[in-house]
Amino acid sequence: MIPEVAVERLFGFRHAFDAPVTLWLTVAILTVMTASGAALFVLNRRNAEQFGEAWLRWKSWVWIAGCILIPILLGAAWTIAAVTLLSLGCYREFTRATGLFREKTISVIVVLGIFVLAFASLDHWERLFFATGPLTVGLITIATIPSDRPKGYIQRVALGVLGFSLFGFSLGYMSNLANDVNYRPILLLMIFAVSLNDVFAYCFGKALGRRKLLPATSPGKTMAGFLGALFSTSLVVAVLGHFVFAGSAVDHIGHLIFLGVLISALGQLGDLVISSIKRDVGVKDIGVVIPGHGGLLDRFDSLVLVPPAVFHYLSLVLGPLGGDQPVRIFSSMAQWTIGN
């Protein structure tokens, strides 16, 4: 039998707003979406030429917000499913942009790796989750050896490892985070902060930006944008984090500020990682899945590096995340298990 507490975490949508921060962030997101939508609707009616693009982007944002909020609120199982789809979608775009999609064997291994990560998260089998990273990398390195094609070996293996590390393993940490009973506010805080970080960088860059940050990699980014986002996001994370982690070891100004710096810096670096990939292969957008935005990677680029850092920082300070939750929920029911 699956323990009741695990069922509640995986599928217990009634607990969606147990943490007040979840409710606050949900209301804040819905309010911002509604207000900006109403404003853009009116502006678009008056001047479709000028505001048509913004209206299109807003409509896409509604879908994006829904696809993030609904699974997180519904339960950990839905969150893990959504993260798995995001991983697969991002990996697909990466392979099509780099040409790795022509190497089917490597993609089969990466996709299997992503599914194993999803199962390990769903099962709350952390040893399997952490083993999947290096073992998948190992498999990628040997997968194309039997085809006896040494030419291009380094490129295809390196791209396979990069693709799995960034979009399978790194994004997969969000699934692993869902094993903590308090996963809703943590994930929402992380995703909200990463999105806000982009907005801060843009606004500070527009207002104060003179010196370019890395003009060859991303001509639009400025030093002022980077520092302004670093400061503002850290502040927002520190304030919201105080409520998310109330009473725990992380609820200390030093930890909260550091968490904010981590999210902001890695968010902007993730953006630069994807920009570097796009510049290297010579494409502007990496897909067309989200109208007005481009591909999944054009929208979720800032999220790519953040989850492992947040997970490990929190577990270093708090102890194992989800340590009070049942482990090996499904696999322990099988007769062949050899113990945890």
């Binding site: 099509r96 070996y153 067309v288």
Partner: peptide, 14 residues
Amino acid sequence: MDDWELKPAKDLNL
């Protein structure tokens, strides 16, 4: 099988 090419899909972004 072709040699490796760091080349996006020809139908990327369609």
